[in-house]
Design a protein around this nucleic acid. Structure first.
Lengths: 356, 356
DNA sequence: GTGAAAGCGCTAACAC
DNA sequence: GTGTTAGCGCTTTCAC
C-alpha cells in the first residue's frame, strides 16, 4: 500500500479549476462549456459528451459565487437565531433547515451572542452583503429587543420574524401562546380544579406574558378572582422551577392545580412536590408547556401544551420563499402576513383527578 | 401619521447600489471609493470624508460576493450536521457558532435529512462551489456512514470530523466516550457495587460502542465476569429506556447498579424503578451520560458523565481555522490532527449508597 | 452549433 | 492622491 494512502494530506495551494480549463481541454470555447453545464439544447451531442467527460476528469465544480454575482441570486437565506443551546431555538432551526433543504436553498447561519441585540445593522448588512434572498429573524421577543423594527429601513429583500407580537407592516409567524395558556387553564377548570396557580417564564419574554395572560383570562372568564399571590415567575430553567414552586406553595397554600410555563420548570415543580410528599395529581394537578418528549416520562407523566416549533420553522421558510417568489414575478411590493400556529393540549396523568 | 408608517411594504425591485453609484455621486473614480472602503492611507482626507458621506447617504453595502470572487476568500465555513432536533448536535452547533462568530467567520449550514448519507459528493460540491474555506463534518459515526472517507478525493480545503473513531490522515475532534464509560463504571465499583448492568445506546453508533467498551473493560479490570444477560441496547430515547430497562431487570435480577448510555434513557429507567418500587440508589444505583441540566432534577438527581459538546464545537472551529491559516501562510500541506476531550463525572444521589 | 465580447461588483497593478 | 486597465468565474447577448 502506497504511503499516500497511509497518511493523506490536504493539498492547499491548488488553483481552482475554472470553466476555461475545461474549455481548453475539451477544445471548445468556455461559452460552450457553459451551455453544457446549463443543459442548453443547442450543443451537438458529440460536443456535449466530450465536455462532460472533461468536467468529470477534472472534477470541475462551477463557482456558485460567480453565478450569484451574475444572476443576483444566491439561493441562500439568512437565519438569525439565539440561544441554540436551548431546546426551542434548535427545534425551530431544525424545521427551517428541513424546509430550506427541500426548496434547494442554502442557509447562512448567525447566532447572536445573547437575546438582547444592541445594534442590528451590522448583522443585517453582513447578510445583505452576502446576497441572501430573505431573512428569518428567529430570536424571541424579550424586553425592548424589537424596538428597532420601528426604524428598520426599507429592505430590498423580504424578512420574517418569529416568536413575537404581531406588528403592522411586518411578517410574523408565531405560536399562539395566549391560546396555549387558556387551553391549559380551561382544561384544569374542566377537571374541577378551582385554585389554579401559575409558574410563569420570565415576564420580559413576550411568550411568557402571553401564556400568563391566557391563564389569567381563563380564570376571569370562569368567574374566578386572580390575586398576585397565586403566581410566580421563573427563568425557564428546572432550577428556577424548584425555587419558585417553593415560593408559590408558601404564598398560595390552597392551590390545587398549577399551570407551569414550560416543561423544564414543571420538572422542578414535580421535584418539590415529590420531596414534600405532595401527590400529583391528587393534591396538586400540573400542566406544563412545550411538549418535550421527556414530559411523557416524568413522575408522573405530565399534561402539557405542545407547540410544534419545527412546523413553525418550516412555515417561516415557506412564507419567506413565497415572498421571494412573488417579488421575483411581478416586481411589485410584498404584502406582510401574520401567521399563528395553535398549540395542542396533551393530557396525561398529572392533571386527571380520576387517575390513580 | 402617514400611511407608509401604518403599513410598511417591502420594496423588491430596487437595483443594487454599487461602488460606481457611490463613485459617481462623490465625483471620484470607483477605485478611490474602494480605497476608502478598505481604509487605504493614500486618499486625501477631504476626499475620504466626501466618499463616506455618500456611502452613508446611499446606505451602500459592498458586495461580499464580489469580494470573495476576487480574493478567493469567503470567510465562510461549511457545517454539515444531522439530527438537530436532538440535544447533542444542537449543543455542538452552539459551540461552533460561538467560536466562528468570534473569529469573524460566517457559517453555511447544511443539515442532512438523516444520519446515513448515501452520497456525500453533492454536499461537498455544494459547499466547495460556494467557496467555503473549511468544512466541519458534525455527523455522528453510525454503521458504515464513514466508509466514504477512504475514497475522499484530496480536498483543496481542510476538513474536520466530529464524533467518530480517529482515522489516520484525517482530522478528528471527539469526546472520549470510552473513558466516559470507564469513569462511570469505576465510580460504581468504587462505591461497592458488583452487579453492574448496562443500558447502551444503539450499537451501530460508534459513541454507544465506546461507552459500552469502557463499561466492559472496567468490569474486566476489576476481575468481574461480563455476561450477555447483563446489558441491553436502547435507541437513546426515554421510551426505549423504559422498555429496555424492563428487559434488563428480567434478565439480570441481581443487578445492583446500572450504567445508562445517556441521561434521557436514564430518565426512562428511573420511571421503571419508580413504578416497581425499586429504590434508587438503595436497591439499584444509576449513572447516566451527557450531563444535561435536567439530570440534576430527576427523582433522584442522577450521577452522570458530563460531556462538553459546546467545547467540542468550539475546538473544532479553532482547529479548522488554524489549518486554514497555516495553509495560507506557507502554502504547504496541512498535517491532520486527532483531538480527544475527556468527559467528567458528576456525582449525585443516584449512585451514592450512603445517601438517604 | 459555436465563438467573441461585454459585464456582474469589486480590487490589484500600474500609470500619471 | 487619483484614475485606468485588467480580471476574479461565470453567463448573456449577438455574431457567424
Amino acid at each position: 500500500m502506497p504511503v499516500a494512502q497511509e497518511k493523506r494530506r490536504v493539498m492547499v495551494s491548488k488553483r481552482r479549476i475554472t470553466i476555461r480549463d475545461v474549455a481548453a481541454l475539451a477544445e471548445v470555447s468556455n461559452q460552450t462549456v457553459s451551455r453544457v453545464l446549463n443543459d442548453r439544447p443547442d450543443v451537438a451531442e458529440e460536443t456535449r459528451q466530450r465536455v462532460w467527460q472533461v468536467i468529470e476528469d477534472l472534477n470541475y465544480q462551477p463557482s456558485a459565487i460567480a453565478r450569484s454575482l451574475i444572476h443576483q441570486r444566491s439561493f441562500t437565506l439568512g437565519i438569525v437565531t439565539a440561544g441554540l443551546k436551548f431546546i426551542g431555538p434548535s427545534q425551530t432551526l431544525n424545521g427551517i433547515t428541513k424546509q430550506a433543504e427541500e426548496a434547494g436553498y442554502t442557509l447562512l447561519l448567525k447566532e447572536l451572542p445573547g437575546f438582547h441585540t444592541v445594534d442590528i445593522n451590522p448583522i443585517l448588512n453582513m447578510l445583505l452583503s452576502r446576497q441572501v434572498e430573505g431573512i428569518i429573524w428567529a430570536v424571541p421577543e424579550i424586553g425592548d429587543n424589537r424596538d428597532w423594527i420601528q426604524g428598520l429601513p426599507e429592505l430590498a429583500i423580504p424578512m420574517i420574524f418569529l416568536d413575537m407580537q404581531a406588528r403592522p407592516g411586518v411578517s410574523v409567524v408565531t405560536i399562539d401562546n395566549y391560546s396555549g395558556g387558556r387551553l391549559a387553564t380551561e382544561h384544569l377548570l374542566a377537571q374541577g380544579y378551582v385554585h389554579i396557580g401559575h409558574l410563569s417564564g420570565p415576564l420580559d419574554w413576550w411568550e411568557a406574558r402571553q401564556r400568563q395572560a391566557g391563564w389569567q383570562d381563563a380564570l376571569h372568564d370562569a368567574g374566578l378572582q386572580v390575586s398576585n399571590r397565586q403566581w410566580v415567575s421563573g427563568n425557564w430553567s428546572t432550577a428556577s422551577g424548584v425555587q419558585e414552586m417553593e415560593r408559590l406553595l408558601e404564598n398560595y397554600p390552597e392551590m390545587d392545580a398549577v399551570f407551569v410555563g414550560n416543561d423544564q420548570m414543571a420538572l422542578g415543580a414535580l421535584q418539590v412536590f415529590c420531596q414534600r410528599g405532595i401527590r400529583v395529581p391528587e393534591d396538586v394537578a400540573v400542566v406544563g408547556f412545550d411538549g418535550i418528549p421527556e414530559a411523557a416520562y416524568y413522575c408522573p407523566p405530565i399534561t402539557t401544551v405542545s407547540q410544534d416549533l419545527r412546523e413553525l420553522g418550516s412555515i417561516a421558510v415557506q412564507e419567506l420563499l413565497q415572498a421571494i417568489e412573488s417579488a421575483r414575478q411581478d416586481h411589485t411590493t410584498y404584502e406582510p402576513k401574520q401567521i399563528t400556529i395553535r398549540p395542542e393540549l396533551v393530557v396525561r396523568e398529572s392533571s386527571v383527578a380520576a387517575s390513580v
